[in-house]
Design a protein around this nucleic acid. Structure first.
Lengths: 231, 231
DNA sequence: CTATGTGAAGAACTTCACAGCT
DNA sequence: AGCTGTGAAGTTCTTCACATAG
């Protein structure tokens, strides 16, 4: 019941086959969660798809469709109960267990990520920080003692539950680090180096590239007649 | 009342109507540019859509389609001339003029961005850095003397060619900063604060949210049967 | 009477096949 | 002969309309 939350045991004829969920739905789910968490904290108890639409700027039909991929979370005539929607969203996104992550690269960016991670809800936990600069190894970043990348492999072998690797190293060494992470069973990689990494199918890969973001902005500034931004 | 169906007729499609370019095309353009710049630097002079596809993992049909939105840059039977494709892509993306940008927030993230911006091709230039922390104001970050956010408005009025604002402040103050930037004629905003900013239509807006990225990874780690990642 | 959930229509985007240059 | 450029087909995603549940 937890895992394959097949919709409805009604007299639905719908088989719910492979059911490919659009990537954009997953992205939007995180926006809904953001809003719902904020409102939950404020003590608001209910929200309609129209209100959720208002907050997120995502069309209310789409809000309902997105949620309906995963179940029936609302009450007709009423809307969605915020605490329960929050719980459902966290469940869908896999945030009920804590994902352990390592950060590789203790430069400004790595430090920013580590610092920021303090604000992350349970769901993610940074467990170690690595760098190749002898001047940084051994130093403290928040509560972490920076380790040598030469110990990364050993660390991962000793801590096989580490799920996510965050790459905050220069482009030149990013693929090397990625390979190391992958070879040692990491399941997801979040890359901040401005380079496209080659990663096998089964490893979840996401990349944040400042240059790309700026170039996209440049395009839309330069061509104001072109609309639409997702990012 | 509806727009007329422009479904292709015999020989009459060079009309170029409103021609909406997919957002994803723009994102891919930046990937092509990345590859083409790398190869150009290496002295490679020509590339086919198949090779570009290989490098970027983007289907070669799509490579050609994306480029064809903007013109005919290739030579049939040969491929694309790298220096000229590079020039074309930069032109399309609006990178032939330098966009001036300010960074607001001189914490780790802001500093990482400033540091990184040194590697940016001409196309972007950070012109000033602001923070609200009296302890930071006046200090040096790379070549910039950090200014007070209280001078942001004045700065923008005095430097109206500033096109882009990069927000690297905590969530709580991000909307305030955004409003200030917008009120003073900024054209594009790149937001790193984990909050959805309300921004008018005409301002180009892009957001990088670590939480969202991690949550998306969490989803795909948790549901390995779901495929597809764009990010 | 209200707001959800969803099949179906409609758009948007991607893939394909091949015409068209070189 | 080879690789681009592009209409058309195919697929996926979004919007819509309305039956449905409270």
């Amino acid at each position: 019941m937890m895992e394959k939350k097949i919709t409805a045991q009604r007299k639905k004829q719908k088989e719910l086959p492979a059911l490919q969920i659009p990537y954009s739905t997953i992205v939007r789910l995180t926006h809904y969660l953001r809003v719902v968490e904020k409102l939950d904290e404020l003590g608001v108890s209910n929200i309609s798809s129209a209100e959720l639409s208002e907050e997120t700027k995502i069309n209310s039909f789409l809000v309902r469709k997105d949620l309906s991929y995963f179940g029936e979370f609302g009450t007709r005539g009423v809307g969605y109960d915020i605490p329960s929607l929050r719980r459902e969203l966290r469940g869908i996104l896999g945030l009920t267990k804590t994902h352990k992550a390592v950060v590789v690269g203790a430069g400004n960016l790595g430090r920013a990520l580590i610092h920021y991670s303090g604000f992350l809800d349970k769901g993610f936990e940074i467990t170690a920080v690595f760098d190749s600069d002898p001047g940084k190894i051994g130093s403290k970043v928040e509560n972490f003692q920076v380790r040598s990348v030469f110990n990364l492999e050993e660390y991962l072998k000793g801590n096989p539950e580490t799920a996510i690797g965050i790459i905050a190293v220069p482009a030149a060494s990013a693929q090397f680090i990625a390979n190391l992470l992958i070879a040692n069973g990491i399941k997801g990689i979040l890359n901040f180096a401005p380079i496209t990494l080659q990663v096998p199918e089964e490893v979840v890969y996401s990349s944040v590239d400042l240059t790309t973001h700026l170039e996209i902005i440049s395009f839309y500034i330069t061509h104001p007649e072109a609309k639409k931004m997702n990012g």
